[in-house]
């Protein structure tokens, strides 16, 4: 089976869905899900261990972002699909207006010319860590292409396209 997004066919690899409240009950779920998914999708990459380590680090940041910015109730899901060297992560996250606005602004800021400087500044800033930091890292260090798709009033889909074998 293939799904088509835009003009590029992506073959689905794996989907994990769990109740949002269950997900949000334990911070370690981010690390565990990231590690599990990375292992599953990396085995047939050229260098499976290196790829899994990179993929899990990237996915962990996305999941940690979602952990902090989601609405209660419903289901959160993580889908990974593949088109050649590109792996697509799609997080479906329950949201409200405030959360949708957070993601929309964050994604919008990623297209700024000085996004790399912003990322470094956020990493080294005094005080609380910028909640957008994971998205900044993906855009700058992992060169991920990030996009947001609204799914009605109470859900959004965060899409991250990663090309890790060429990047590292």
């Amino acid at each position: 089976m293939t799904v088509t997004t835009g003009n590029t066919p992506f073959a689905p690899l794996l989907e994990i869905a769990l109740g949002t409240d269950t997900f949000a009950a334990n911070w370690d779920h981010c690390d565990r899900i990231a590690t599990y998914v990375a292992r599953m999708v990396s085995h047939n990459r050229t260098d499976s261990l290196l790829y899994a380590n990179l993929f899990s680090s990237a996915l962990n940041e996305l999941l940690e972002t979602a952990f902090r910015a989601h609405n209660g109730g419903g289901e959160i899901s993580c889908t990974v699909s593949r088109s050649g060297p590109v792996d697509r992560i799609e997080l479906t996250i329950p949201c409200n207006d405030k959360i949708t606005s957070f993601y929309a602004n964050a994604i919008n800021d990623l297209s700024a010319a000085d996004v790399a400087d912003r990322y470094v500044a956020a990493l080294l800033a005094e005080g609380e860590l910028d909640p957008r930091i994971g998205l900044l890292e993906l855009a700058v260090d992992y060169k991920a292409k990030l996009a947001l798709t609204p799914m009605g009033q109470d859900k959004l889909r965060l899409v991250a396209d990663l090309t890790l074998e060429d990047t590292y």
């Binding site: 940690e64 080294l124 994971g134 890292e137």
Partner: peptide, 17 residues
């Protein structure tokens, strides 16, 4: 160190600074 999230990096950077 196989995993270091941004929260930990941010804190480590603070110690270093």
């Amino acid at each position: 160190l196989v995993r270091l999230n941004n929260i930990a990096f941010h804190e480590l950077a603070r110690f270093v600074a």
